[in-house]
Amino acid sequence: VDNKFNKEQQNAFYEILHLPNLNEEQRNAFIQSLKDDPSQSANLLAEAKKLNDAQA
């Protein structure tokens, strides 16, 4: 993981990586967004979790 991520951002990265119901395309999009703007990690994680739950 890129060293410019802080602890919260790293946690978001790993959580998104391991959400079971996202397809690869969705997962990659969230990860790319996280890399583009790490400050949005909490929002991105919340969105990813919502999508993950919706696809459960």
Rank of each mutant, 00 (worst) to 15 (best):
V1F: 05
V1R: 03
V1Q: 07
V1N: 08
D2I: 04
D2A: 03
D2F: 02
D2C: 09
D2E: 05
N3G: 07
N3M: 01
N3S: 05
N3C: 11
N3Y: 01
N3T: 09
N3E: 08
N3R: 03
N3H: 05
N3F: 01
N3K: 04
K4C: 15
K4L: 08
K4Q: 08
F5W: 07
F5L: 08
F5T: 07
F5I: 10
N6P: 05
N6T: 06
N6Q: 03
N6W: 03
N6R: 01
N6S: 03
N6E: 15
K7T: 11
K7V: 07
K7S: 04
K7Y: 06
K7W: 05
E8M: 02
E8W: 04
E8C: 02
Q9F: 08
Q9K: 01
Q9H: 03
Q10H: 03
Q10I: 08
Q10E: 10
N11G: 09
N11Y: 15
N11H: 14
N11T: 09
N11A: 14
N11V: 15
N11M: 15
A12Q: 03
A12S: 05
A12K: 02
A12Y: 03
A12F: 05
A12V: 11
F13E: 02
F13H: 07
F13W: 11
F13S: 03
F13C: 04
F13N: 02
F13I: 06
F13Q: 06
F13M: 14
Y14L: 09
Y14Q: 08
Y14I: 07
Y14G: 02
E15P: 01
E15S: 15
E15H: 15
E15C: 15
E15W: 15
E15F: 14
I16W: 01
I16V: 06
I16A: 01
I16M: 09
I16G: 01
I16D: 00
I16Y: 00
I16H: 00
L17E: 06
L17P: 01
L17C: 12
L17G: 05
L17V: 07
L17Y: 15
L17D: 03
L17Q: 10
H18E: 08
H18G: 09
H18F: 06
H18C: 07
H18K: 09
H18M: 05
P20I: 07
P20L: 10
P20A: 06
P20R: 13
P20E: 10
P20K: 07
P20M: 12
P20V: 04
N21F: 11
L22A: 00
N23Y: 04
N23V: 05
N23L: 13
N23A: 03
N23W: 14
N23Q: 11
E24C: 14
E24M: 09
E24Y: 11
E24F: 08
E25T: 04
E25R: 13
E25I: 13
E25G: 10
E25D: 11
Q26M: 06
Q26F: 04
Q26T: 06
Q26N: 03
Q26K: 05
Q26H: 04
R27P: 00
R27K: 05
R27Q: 05
R27E: 00
R27Y: 01
N28F: 15
N28C: 14
N28E: 10
N28M: 13
N28V: 06
N28I: 13
N28T: 05
N28S: 14
F30P: 00
F30Q: 00
F30D: 00
F30N: 00
F30M: 06
F30R: 00
I31E: 02
I31C: 04
I31Q: 05
I31A: 14
I31W: 06
Q32G: 10
Q32L: 15
Q32N: 11
S33Y: 03
S33R: 15
S33G: 08
S33K: 14
L34V: 09
L34K: 00
L34I: 07
K35G: 07
K35S: 06
K35M: 09
K35T: 05
K35Q: 07
D36G: 11
D36Q: 12
D36N: 09
D37F: 05
D37Q: 09
D37T: 10
D37M: 08
P38R: 03
P38F: 03
P38G: 06
P38L: 04
S39I: 11
S39Q: 05
S39K: 09
S39L: 10
Q40Y: 10
Q40V: 07
Q40M: 13
Q40D: 11
Q40W: 08
Q40H: 10
Q40T: 11
Q40I: 10
S41D: 03
S41H: 14
S41F: 15
S41Y: 15
A42C: 14
A42N: 10
A42M: 14
A42H: 12
A42Q: 09
A42P: 07
N43R: 09
N43F: 15
N43T: 09
N43D: 07
N43Y: 15
L44H: 07
L44Y: 11
L44S: 03
L45D: 00
L45Y: 12
L45H: 02
L45W: 08
A46R: 04
A46W: 14
A46T: 09
A46N: 10
A46E: 08
E47V: 15
E47R: 14
E47L: 15
A48R: 00
A48I: 01
K49Q: 09
K49V: 09
K49A: 07
K49H: 03
K49I: 05
K50C: 13
K50Q: 12
K50M: 12
L51C: 08
L51P: 00
L51H: 08
L51I: 12
L51R: 07
N52V: 03
N52A: 06
N52Q: 03
N52T: 02
N52M: 02
D53A: 13
D53Q: 11
D53C: 13
D53W: 13
D53M: 14
D53F: 15
A54I: 13
A54C: 12
Q55K: 05
Q55C: 12
Q55V: 12
Q55N: 12
A56F: 12
A56D: 07
A56K: 08
A56R: 05
A56N: 13
A56C: 14
A56Q: 12
